[in-house]
Design a protein around this nucleic acid. Structure first.
Length: 526
RNA sequence: GCGAGCGUAGCUCAGUGGUAGAGCGCCACCUUGCCAAGGUGGCUGUCGUGGGUUCAAAUCCCAUCGCUCGCUCCA
């Protein structure tokens, strides 16, 4: 691939061929929003189909959900996303650091001035870092898009466009559990639009204000439950087989690693080279307080190595937060756990509780919380923990576009050189699978036969009919669209039913019957 | 959000106060027996948008929107 691909060259091709347009271009555009054209929306659809197939359809332990974008505002209080709104921030114009206005004032023995919903700094407030008085007015820094439900705009009906799809999965956890006939460990997957009012959208579509996510929340037992059921916990030290069936004895760390492994495999399967994929393991300081581990899967974009997906082990934080805020229980009852606990005598149970308490207090948690958790476990109940692989669809589309782009210099028989622009998409995600052409269009019998073959192939795959211009030109047009194969119907087709199949990458041609072609397509597209 | 640069046809760009252009692409017809062939004809723009200066503005001024780069931010 072209590592030095200029994003403007790519953006130009994307516009010229109909992959990506700037939103609202007719009116001068709007920053941070993008539209997918005829080829782009096919590409994105193929990405989503591939993800859904890998994550939901071909698994017995994952089910889908499609939730509304606007949800009860309390969800964002529980998740922590709404906090910034209540906390106006000030920036220091000199050292460029940002502080919470209320904390800054309190530290300096001052009081933040409040005028209705606006805030102002009292005289004498200075930057805690550099001492400068050159501070901005306090401003709210919530990055969620705000709207009103119903016709009246007042504080009582404020709502937010979701900044992530994940929370709906937690909010609907009980309903899914009750209806899906699944038991922990299992997952809930969702794809859909999310919105973040980014301060500074950059790098073409990479950071957009409206974007699509593909998220899985995979719920697992707490390690302590696994230990009670299996007698031991499989850890990474046991060298578990991450390609095989998941095992009941896996602890959270193995589950987390399993999903990292699965997701990397998927990216490779849709054509991103392993060499351009990187893992970034967040370190202790970078992890959110509730997260036990978080890995970013990154791709080497022309503008830098950037995140495609984050895979976080989030403990029971999310469900617990919703349990706390909603007052509704998020416990699951685990029959296997109950049976395992029932086999223990009173002394063994107490020993188990003591062990959990010792373990938790060693990690700085309260003994009474540990005791309550352990006692519930012995009743077969717990709040599930979660592993969250969260991918950005648009970022992936951009990565695939960057990866596919190539300018190839060709030399013909006479030594004349020519540059061919070709989008080398994996067949599974290529917007158009087949171009279908009559060799010439002014021979009715040839033309009719080609239409007949096109109609047949079109029922299976997205095909593109092209009869205009010389055959070579038509091939090159398909190269820029990233179409992996072109079928040309010629005079020999009328005699023996074979067609010419031209391969995008090698530019080689072979003759095939239609059934042989269909078989080849099935094998290559997957 | 700050600083700098840039916005002219679908794309790449020329045009510095006097009736908007080129190449490529695209469309139609002809031609064409396999890699951007050739011929003929054709389409496309409130010169990003809105104001202002001027007899006259793509060109000068102001504002605004968008893009790029560097900081900043990034749940």
């Amino acid at each position: 691939m072209s590592k030095k691909l200029d994003m403007e060259i790519l953006a130009s091709l994307c516009k010229r061929r109909g992959f990506i347009f700037q939103s609202s271009e007719l009116y001068g555009g709007i920053n941070g929003f993008w539209d997918y054209g005829p080829l782009g929306c096919e590409l994105k659809r193929n990405i989503k189909d591939a993800w859904w197939k890998a994550m939901v359809r071909t698994r017995e332990d994952v089910v889908g959900l499609e939730a509304s974008i606007i949800m009860h505002p309390a969800i964002w209080k529980a998740s922590g996303h709404a906090d910034g709104f209540a906390d106006p921030m000030v920036d220091c114009k000199d050292c460029r650091k940002r502080f919470r206005a209320d904390q800054l004032c309190e530290e300096q023995g001052l009081e933040l001035i409040k005028n209705g919903s606006a805030f102002a700094l009292p005289a004498g407030a200075v930057c805690p870092a550099c001492g400068s008085k050159n501070l901005t007015e306090p401003r709210s820094f919530n990055l969620m898009f705000k709207t009103y439900v119903g016709p009246v705009e007042d504080d009582s009906n404020v709502a937010w466009l979701r900044p992530e799809t994940a929370q709906a999965i937690f909010a609907q956890f009980n309903n899914v559990l009750a209806t899906a006939r699944q038991k922990v460990p299992f997952g809930v997957a969702q794809m859909g639009k999310s919105f973040r009012n980014e301060i500074n959208p950059r790098n073409y579509t990479f950071r957009s204000r409206e974007f699509e996510q593909m998220e899985l929340e995979f719920f697992i037992r707490p390690d302590e439950a696994v230990e009670l059921i299996c007698g031991k916990i499989t850890t990474l030290a046991d060298n578990p087989d991450l390609d095989g069936e998941p095992q009941e004895s896996w602890g959270w760390e193995v589950w987390h690693r399993y999903w990292v492994h699965q997701r990397l495999g998927w990216y490779r399967a849709i054509g991103l080279p392993a060499a351009d994929l990187e893992q970034y393991w967040q370190t202790g300081d970078e992890l959110a307080h509730y997260a036990r581990a978080c890995v970013d899967i990154e791709y080497a974009f022309p503008f830098g190595v950037q995140e495609l997906e984050g895979i976080a082990a989030r403990s029971d934080f999310d469900l617990s937060q919703h349990q706390k805020h909603s007052g509704k229980g998020m416990d699951v009852f685990d029959e296997a756990l109950k049976q395992a606990a029932d086999k223990l005598d009173a002394a063994a149970k107490e020993a188990f509780v003591q062990k959990v308490v010792a373990d938790w207090t060693g990690r700085g948690k309260a003994a009474e919380d540990a005791r309550a958790f352990a006692t519930k476990l012995l009743e077969g109940k717990y709040v599930p923990h979660v592993i969250e692989p969260s991918a950005g669809t648009d970022r992936l589309a951009l990565a695939l576009l960057c990866n596919a782009y190539e300018e190839e210099t060709l030399t013909d028989d006479k030594g004349k050189t020519d540059v061919r622009t070709v989008m080398r998409f994996h067949p599974a995600i290529a917007p158009i699978k087949l171009g279908v052409f009559p060799l010439v269009k002014n021979k009715p019998e040839l033309y009719g036969k080609a239409r007949e073959i096109f109609a047949k192939l079109q029922r299976r795959w997205n095909c593109f009919w092209d009869e205009s211009g010389a055959i070579g030109r038509r091939y090159r047009r398909m190269d820029e669209a990233g179409t992996p194969w072109c079928v040309t119907v010629d005079f020999q087709t009328l005699e023996d039913g074979t067609v010419t199949l031209r391969d995008r990458d090698s530019m080689r041609q072979e003759r095939l019957t239609i059934p042989a072609l269909v078989e080849k397509m099935d094998a290559e597209i997957g």
